[in-house]
Write a protein that binds this DNA or RNA. Structure first.
Lengths: 240, 240
DNA sequence: CGAACCCTTGACAGAAATCAACTAAGGTGG
DNA sequence: CCACCTTAGTTGATTTCTGTCAAGGGTTCG
């Protein structure tokens, strides 16, 4: 890897506090590759040989069953993914594909485990990272199990919209068909849900969304910090 | 805590390989309590003050939103829970209640974090444990998002049924209303789903289930190691 | 015995998926 | 530059699935 990339990664919470020596071990055998869009990086059930880090672009983590498929997560820079499979040396439970042109650092899992064993700072950072992943997917499960389709769309819009200015418009960071898969519905249902939200002051112009009446949307979605995550400002509802 | 309990816990993967000294630190301030059924141990959004370990009985992890509620997990002995909230010192994302008379060890999270920082063996064990939790909830999300209600019930029966003898009967480890909540449906829907599975050779007599035709059930549920977990023997379907 | 509570069943309503058709936008190649 | 093709998105009609509401049976337990 080139030096400037090295320093980029070095700043990540996962690597920030570890020793230089161990960091060198990790990066020595790492690959840095740029993939075009729609490339499958790995397939569920295959062995976890690398810890992946998205430096640029976007990666979809998805899973299939029979002829169905669902998106579990979309990874954006700068973030690691599949840490859990790495640590336990287990097969992936999800497949990964690039959504756009994407640059990825791949570190051999053997190195990750080696360094994990001898660098307490890295161990702590890895644990923190994995805890965050765990809590994210718990939230996702709650979103799916507790809210209906329309409520999920409303909540997604609220947590995706910029906090300031309050009623600003923004562009969906995901293709609608992908968003539909992520929040557990068909593209048709998403389209209809968005349409129905127009009566609550949501304007939809292609990828651009304008929330004219945040309060109305909130009274439907009841955004909660316990489901929508810490990034969402308007999360008064802390209790059930 | 009494000595015999200490040795019980000591055998857990999480504590097995750590030093005696650090183990002593962890257990010194730990509580050992036995609760009756239907006691709420903690509520989502509250601070994670203790790492919990179920020694006996069963604990439900659930979450509420508006007037709805869903079960995320049922913990049975001997297992820890809410490690992630412990490590990150964040509020719980789930509430917990006992399902029956339950004995629980509670270790102050401050001690857990202290020991985590200085005992690499414990750090590794904790990471392994958390990875397993992460992968379990990923599987749960896949189950919910990829299968419909009837398929989820069929898959649950297959993964709960003893592997040998093939067509033995068994008793559901969960109340049906709880099972329904766990696999994301209403009790009424579960009841109907079970009824409809009778034509596939499933006998339902109260809590006792008999699978007369495993193959028929499998052709509906398509059990997969990637969703139903490593405990399920009949998980040929490794690919999508 | 009565009071809960779990489970089941039936009737119904509502939600969401499916199937199909159509539009619009973007890219390709003649 | 335009015709063509592909694909995302939308819309409508319809079916399927699932939740809701209501009632009744059975069990447990005080």
């Amino acid at each position: 890897m080139r030096d400037n990339e090295l320093s980029d990664i070095r700043q990540l919470p996962l690597f920030r506090s570890m020793s230089n020596e161990n960091y060198a071990t990790l990066t020595r055998a790492a690959y840095d590759q740029t993939f075009p869009a729609q490339v499958q990086l790995f397939e569920e059930a295959s062995g976890a040989d690398f810890l992946h880090i998205v430096m640029d672009g976007a990666v979809e983590l998805f899973a299939g069953w029979q002829d169905r498929e669902t998106t579990l997560e979309v990874i954006r820079p700068v973030t690691t993914f599949i840490l859990a499979a790495c640590i336990t040396d287990s097969p992936y439970l999800m497949s990964a594909r690039t959504l756009e042109k994407t640059r990825i650092i791949m570190m051999p899992t053997v190195d990750v485990r080696t360094v994990f064993d001898k660098d307490p700072a890295f161990a702590l950072a890895a644990m923190t990272e994995l805890s965050a992943c765990y809590r994210r997917i718990i939230r996702h499960a709650k979103d799916i199990k507790l809210r209906n389709a329309r409520e999920r769309v409303a909540a997604y819009l609220l947590r995706t919209a910029p906090a300031e200015p309050t009623n600003a418009s923004f562009v969906l960071p995901l293709e609608k068909r992908l968003l539909a898969s992520f929040i557990g519905m068909t593209p048709e249902s998403l389209s209809r849900a968005m349409r129905s939200l127009q009566e609550l002051g949501v304007k939809v112009e292609g990828q651009r969304i304008t929330i004219a009446n945040r309060a109305a949307l909130e009274s439907l979605a009841h955004p909660s910090w316990l489901i929508d995550g810490p990034d969402l400002q308007n999360s008064q509802t802390r209790g059930p």
